[in-house]
Amino acid sequence: MTHEIVMAGFGGQGVMAIGKIIAEAGLKEGKNVSWLPSYGPEMRGGTASCNVIVSADPVGSPIVTGATEAIVLNRPSLDKFEKDVVPGGMLFINSSLIDKKSTRDDIKVYYVPANDIANELGNGKIANMVMLGAYIAATNAVSEDTIMEIVTEMFQGKKASVIPLNKEALAKGAECVK
């Protein structure tokens, strides 16, 4: 199966980072992957998004026009990308910051209070990993074990202390979709 994923949020929410983690994990599992960021003159608080493709087949266009899944961390991203999910696809909404419900009835929608969970874990910055945990549990696009391998590689030396927190965030996110 080919996962064509759009993830979007405010700059600083870590959407580029979770996109990279998914792509790295896909590569580690021997799949074909691409990661394409939106780029442009944005400032802090502006919107950021990226397109990630994970597939058994070679990746054609790196641009996602019909998303099998979308992960949205703020309201403008929901407004922009909700329509891009293909029928039967999945939409992951950060319900801590987005009070609006999806209007789509032909897709599966998951509401994940990512910022609330992150704050409960003691670090608001980790909301992106909560969303990632929900995404992985619902799709199995890559395995959670591979995600943890990548996270472990990312945080080495002194930074290794944040690995358990990341693991917890992934697990809490996963609980939201079960």
């Binding site: 792509a23 691409s34 394409l36 960021p37 780029y39 790196p62």
Partner: peptide, 10 residues
């Protein structure tokens, strides 16, 4: 083009 420059691939 901008895509080749900006995207990440294996």
């Amino acid at each position: 083009d901008g895509m080749i420059g900006q995207m990440m691939e294996p």
